[in-house]
Design a protein around this nucleic acid. Sequence first.
RNA 1: CGGGGCGUGGCGCAGCCCGGUAGCGCACCUGCUUUGGGAGCAGGGAGUCGGAGGUUCAAAUCCUCUCGCCCCGACCA
Length: 420
Amino acid sequence: MRSLSDPFLTLHDDPSDAEVASHRLMLRAGFIHKIAGGIYTYLPSAVRVLKKIESIVRREMNRAGGFEILMPSLQPGDLWESTGRWEKYGKELFRLSDRHERDFALGPTHEEVVTSLIASQVGSYRQLPVLVYQIQTKFRDEIRPRFGLLRGREFIMKDAYSFSASEEDAKAIYEKMQEAYKDIFRKLGLRARMVDADSGLIGGNLSHEFMIMAPSGEDTVVSCSNCEWAANIEKAEGVTVCPVCQGAVSRETAIEVGHVFYLGHKYSLPMNGLFSDQDGQEKPFVMGCYGIGISRLLACAIEQSHDEKGMIWPVSMAPFQISVLPLGPVASENPSVLSLIQELEGRFPDEVYIDDRDLRAGVKFGDADLKGFPVQVICGEKNLSAGNVEIKVRKTGEREILAFSAVSGRISEILKSLSV
RNA sequence: CGGGGCGUGGCGCAGCCCGGUAGCGCACCUGCUUUGGGAGCAGGGAGUCGGAGGUUCAAAUCCUCUCGCCCCGACCA
């Protein structure tokens, strides 16, 4: 991709209405555009990150035996009546009515829709367990949307739902999903921590959250300095010593990026989600549900990895892995540079961003650091005339001067070393 | 919903207290010079001052109402 054709500008000044790093940097770097409070357009760079997050999530969900579906956002009110949540969900549910005055909701979550789906498709224990998931836009009329993509009224979520014949089977899936989530965050290059959690409006009596430690977090995690125990403060109110090993506990702010719930019969009972068991008896599905905030992860990655100059993307999520900066008027026409670009595009397909704008070096450096692609290839005239180019690693600031022929091989090594 | 703050070209702001018909920096367009860390000169385009009422000869400025946005608290991926 070439920068000349990129219509979305970067900003030199910080936007006045953004406080936290991810919000500020995404506005400055041209990743998002606000249309109303808590509602954003994702611009090309952000979309590329979202697609990368989605593809990692999708791969792990499929590996865990999930089937991808896509349920409607527009949901009939009666469905919500059937579980009592039309009342209980309160003001956070976006409600609307059609031309016949029938009630509808914009889905904030999909337990009702998915339970009615599976109830209609699955009648026998032989068909169980079932794991379905989707990646979709959710709507929640938040009390206070804030911090850009960290708390929006419209956001992208991966939600998965499991249906099992027995409690044991259901707990096995629950544990499998915990492992899948750990894999996902590790592959994304994020440091996440699993903690005991309260299950809130979704319900059930067992749940764990996945937390990204960050000063801008709205949650507080209480954790033991001695063993692995950790919990959301909501769950660990008043706790002064670790309940497992009696060790000392400390508190840290964090951002919730994933949540797994063991639901039991909470939705299957009121909604008549029944199957015939081995003994011919009708029994309710034992359910679980599992969410990951996809668009929130985009913001979290920045919260967890940035400096005063801008974003520092992990290789797995970077909009582009490589940016090429030809400096000066003749560098972008230089035949060696052109063939280097061609070579890079061949070896790293769709991962090369070329800043071929006719701008001063400082502007290009500033934008490259702001956008934070992992490796910068700097083609300045002095190095060019000696047959060399410079490589800079965004994360460490390390620079190397290399012959043209060595560049793409060296970048491969660097990307690999950054990925672990 | 309570408390605080803010709405003036795309972005950041000044002007408001003390009314006189809109200004600065960045960005954008044209030309010349410049070219390894956010260049210089010259010229140019762009704003119903969030909206509606009111006071006044005259309102960005004063008054009333309203809408929106941000931050702090009670909810959540």
